[in-house]
Computed example of a mutant assay.
Amino acid sequence: MVKNCICAEENMSELNLDNEMLKKLETYIDNIEEKEGCLINVLHEAQNMFGYLPSDLQLFISRKLDIPAAKVFGVTTFYSFFTMEPRGKHVISVCMGTACFVKGADKIFNEFKKKLNLKDSSTSEDGMFTLDSLRCVGACGLAPVVLVDGKVYGRVKVEDVEQIIMELTEEKVIKVN
């Protein structure tokens, strides 16, 4: 099998991505002993580094792992954890599973949209917030559930939305005695 040759200096300049970060990702991939079956791990690492998985980055990963770009795209779009769009500093995810929906998750989602001035699942213009919905987080006993930057908020009410946003926007002042 002939492997695609990807050399950092030759091919990174043609991508619309940060070359230094691409070199770090390339080093990460090069240090993987068994490349077969490592796609999800590489996508996780790439998303942690870049914040999202744009098509140029997926193509780079495809070439480095010598797998079809369609496979990389397929995995990226199949798993809801991966995103092809930049995300905000704070990611707010409202669970829309049956238990959460029955207990008013749609109203909570709409309140976040209203308070953050968003049209739908999107990122605020200032890049501070991304709002999206999830199918189920598996915490039905805490319904309705909201995840904020990975932190679980259970039994959320519409009235709690403003407080959650305030917690995220407050500047922490450290007093020195």
Rank of each mutant, 00 (worst) to 15 (best):
V2P: 08
V2Q: 13
K3A: 15
K3L: 15
N4S: 12
C5V: 09
C5A: 14
A8S: 10
E9G: 05
E10A: 11
N11C: 14
N11K: 12
M12S: 10
M12W: 07
M12N: 11
S13M: 11
E14S: 08
N16G: 11
D18T: 03
L22H: 01
L22N: 04
K23I: 13
L25G: 00
Y28C: 09
N31W: 11
I32E: 13
I32N: 06
E33R: 02
E33A: 14
E34L: 04
K35N: 15
E36S: 07
G37Q: 15
G37L: 09
L39N: 06
I40F: 14
I40K: 07
V42G: 10
V42K: 05
V42M: 08
L43I: 12
L43S: 04
H44R: 11
H44T: 15
A46R: 06
Q47K: 03
M49T: 13
G51W: 01
G51T: 05
G51V: 07
Y52V: 04
P54T: 07
D56I: 12
L59Y: 02
L65Y: 03
I67S: 07
A70H: 12
K71I: 13
K71S: 08
K71C: 07
F73A: 14
F73C: 11
T76A: 05
F78G: 15
Y79R: 07
Y79A: 13
S80C: 15
S80M: 09
F81H: 14
T83R: 02
T83I: 03
M84K: 07
E85T: 06
P86L: 15
G88N: 08
K89T: 15
H90R: 07
H90F: 09
I92D: 13
C95L: 02
C95P: 00
G97P: 01
T98E: 02
F101D: 12
F101P: 00
V102T: 10
V102N: 03
V102C: 10
K103M: 13
K103N: 08
G104T: 00
D106T: 08
K107S: 09
F109G: 00
K114Y: 10
N117V: 13
N117L: 13
D120W: 12
D120M: 12
S121I: 10
S122M: 10
T123P: 06
S124A: 06
D126V: 05
G127Y: 01
F129N: 07
F129M: 09
S133F: 08
L134V: 06
L134Q: 10
R135L: 14
R135F: 12
G138E: 01
A139D: 15
L142Y: 04
A143S: 03
P144G: 05
V145W: 00
V146L: 01
V148K: 00
D149H: 00
V152H: 11
V152F: 03
V152S: 10
Y153I: 11
G154Y: 02
V156G: 02
K157W: 04
V158G: 04
V158D: 08
I164H: 00
E167Y: 03
L168F: 13
E170F: 10
E170K: 10
K172H: 13
K172W: 14
I174N: 10
K175N: 09
N177R: 14
N177G: 14
